[in-house]
Structures are given as C-alpha cells and as structure tokens.
Design a protein around this nucleic acid. Structure first.
Lengths: 222, 222
DNA sequence: CATTGCAGGGGACATTTGTGCAGGATTTGG
DNA sequence: CCAAATCCTGCACAAATGTCCCCTGCAATG
C-alpha cells in the first residue's frame, strides 16, 4: 500500500451495507435496490441508504451509475482487498428434503411430501446422491454422538453393511440404530448402555425395512 | 426425463438474447434491462424483447421476478447445460471458510487465508453471521457429542456465556471446551471424564482468547 | 385453411427506483 | 467547543423500467 492511498476505514453500518450488497449479488445474481438494502438493515428512508452508498463510493468500495437501478459494483471487500467474488458453483450444493423425525411414524408418507429443505455442501455428505434428512428424537444413539434434536442425513438404500448407522422401519416407525445382521435375526443396536437391542427374526425382516445409511449428523448449538 | 420435458431448442435470436444477458452480467456485474437488450440487438419495442424473455423463461433458460428491474437469472447455457453461475433461489446460504483444525496451532494466521470453504444453509447455524469452520482434533468433547474429525461451526465473538461451547486460544493453540468463568480463573472444561479442566488465572486471561462460540457440529459418517 | 410459434412495431400505463431537499440526533476529531 | 461526519426520518418528483394491449408479417404444421 502506497502513501497517499489512504486506507479509508468503514463504520460498522457501512460495512453491513457493503456486505449485504455482496450477499445479494452472490446469492441472487444481481445487486439490490436502495429500498431492498433499507429493508434488510431496517433503514426506512431511501436517503439514509443513499448516504451510506455515497460514503462507500467516496471511500472507493463501490461504484454505481447515475439513474440506473441495481447498478452497484463492488470494488473492494470490507477489509480493503480488491473484490472478485466467484459465484457459488452449484455442483457443490445439494438440496435435501427434511422429511420428518425419526421414530415419528408415518415416515414413508412424509418422504413424498417434504416439509422443508436445506442446502448442504456435497463435500459434507461425501458426494452421495439420493440423500434425505431427518430430525432425531430420543437418546438411543447418544454414545455415537447423535443426540436428541440432531439432524441426520441419510443415503437412501435398501441394504447396509454390518456396523453402519442406519435408519430402519420397525412397524411403522423409523428408528436410528447400528445395523448388525446375525444368524437368526437382525440386531438393531442402540448406542446407549441403558437400552436393549431390538431383535427382529430373519423371517420378519424384509429388505424394505432398511431406509438408508446415515452419512452425516448435524447439531445446532447455542 | 419425462416425455414433454423435451430439450427445448433455442432460435438464433433467442440465443443472442441469452448470450447478451450473460455478457452483461459478466462484464458489468449486473443484468440488463429490457431496453438495454433491445438497443443491443436492434429491437425497438420493449415488447419484442419481452417476447424473447418469455420464450426463454418457458424453455427454462432463465427466470425473473415480477415488476423488478434487472432481476434476470440464467439457469442454463445456450447449449442446455446448467448455468455455471446458478443463482441460489433463496438467500439462506452462507459460505463458510474452513480455517484449520482446533488445537492445530497457528490458527490466527489460518483465519486470514482459508484453505477451503463449505456452503451451509443459514437455518443450520441459526441465522448467525461471521461464522467460520474448524475441524476438531482429539477426544476432549466426546461427552458433548463432538468427536475427533468433526466439523464445528463457530460464531466469531470475543465473549461468551457461562456453559457455552467455545473455541479458545490457549497459548498459540485453539481448543474446543465448555466455558466457565469463575472467581479466580477461567475454567475450560472438557466433556471427557478422563481429562482435567484447564484453569487460566484471571490475570493471564485476555478477552482475545475467546475466538468464538460453537453454533453447529457436523460429522461425516460412512 | 386454421393454428401455432417466431419476430417484431408502437404506445399507454403502473411500478419500481434513484435523486434531492429539509430537517434531527449523535458521534468524532481537532 | 465547533465543524464535520455519521445515520437517520419523511417526502416529493422524475426517470427508468416492466407489463399489457393491439397490430403486421412470415414460416411451419396439421
């Protein structure tokens, strides 16, 4: 950085404006209007927003064109580096339906009508396809680090390997357990010393009872 | 692909329109207006341009929003491949830098030069801003369901509430622990019966030692 | 031959959007 | 302490911009 090229610092508010503009471009593909910025930051007057934009222009963080809508261009990031934000590459993102709760019943129906979806980085689910999400109820897998309220991401498949964490349909309830096929029965093993395994005789066991294999776990804190 | 979902081919004119929109976004950073498109292609009537846009929408090459200027989004390239800059429908996505591993040392440097990023649904981090990611090393939080190799998402902040899971800088190592401020010292409590708490005298404790509060945990399985 | 899609012209109209003016309250730097 | 900057409200206005309606012509299709 040369002398004379004074490093104009931003106020917190100006930084927030600049960040929202970047977010908008990044997420929607086009810059926001004055009023959109105002709405997002709780500024009721377009002039209030304009003040910020003028300040950001003066300090060299963005440029715009006269009397044209949405013609904002970012020149520098809030920390002063030249701006060039690559657009999100869709290839890395997957949209995942959250189909209900494990052990909540009537799951198969829920799968057809997802209530909600989340987007998740493909990297986090190991590049798997056909993944859906569930909310966990109960404490049966706490020793595996899967707690009440956690989200689990499940790769849809009808078979599993010994020892994997699976979602199985028992009766009409979905449940999350370790999978242990044995001679006479299939053992669904909880990860909780105080709970007994579920034993299902091989005769009663149908392949449709495995809904999928858990490939990821997410827990919100705070 | 269903029947009826035919591969809609573009006319030469429609292709030209689509390309100009792409050029505009690329060169100027924002999409053009109807009249700008018309000027560029020699179409004097906004309606003429609108016809093209409607056709492109119908064929799935772009989307736009009602009564908003410059809200064009490309969905497919002229040759039918998904657009390289696929605008995420909703803006509930956040790009999160993965800055290193907890207890890996030299973390503060890593924060400046993120090695990698993941995208995550804003819903999963409770709408927080200023979030970064870390990979956990070690077993010190297993009873809190945070295992070796897990990703933690951390809201950047210099203070925390009693009992929250935080990332703290101890010496030059970042560590993940429960936060318990007490009379004489700050206690960093592991969630592992076999490990002792770290006690840091209030004198040695500086606010900069809290790097942030853990707002989410992700674990890959399989 | 009627219909459909394409490619426009021309223009009225409503909405969106940026600009500008007139303030006020607070903070910051000298 | 004053001046400048920050961060707003509120409003009026004009320009930019999308939508809609009614046309013309042409080509392809059934």
């Amino acid at each position: 950085m040369r002398a004379g090229e004074t490093m104009h610092k931003l106020t917190a508010r100006q930084k927030a404006v600049l960040e929202y503009i970047g977010d908008s471009i990044h997420a929607r593909g086009y810059p926001p209007t004055l009023r959109e910025i105002g709405n997002h930051l709780g500024i009721r007057s377009t002039n209030g927003v304009n003040d910020h934009l003028r300040a950001l222009e003066r300090k060299g963080y963005l440029t715009r064109e006269d009397m044209k809508s949405r013609t904002l261009r970012l020149m520098k990031t809030p920390d002063g580096r030249p701006s060039s934000r690559p657009p999100i590459a869709n290839d890395n993102l997957v949209e995942i339906p959250i189909v209900g709760r494990v052990a909540a019943g009537a799951l198969s129906e829920a799968i057809e009508h997802p209530e909600d979806t989340v987007h998740i980085d493909r990297m986090l689910i190991g590049g798997q396809r056909d993944v859906f999400g569930l909310r966990v109820t109960g404490e049966s897998m706490i020793e595996a680090g899967i707690f009440d309220g956690d989200f689990v991401f499940v790769r849809k498949q009808l078979t599993a390997n010994r020892g994997e964490v699976i979602i199985a349909l028992v009766g009409d309830e979905a449940t999350c357990k370790y999978y242990f096929p044995e001679r006479e029965h299939v053992r669904l093993q909880p990860a909780n010393k105080e709970m007994a395994p579920i034993l299902i005789p091989k005769n009663d066991w149908q392949s449709t009872q495995v809904l999928g294999v858990v490939v990821g776990v997410y827990r919100r804190l705070h």
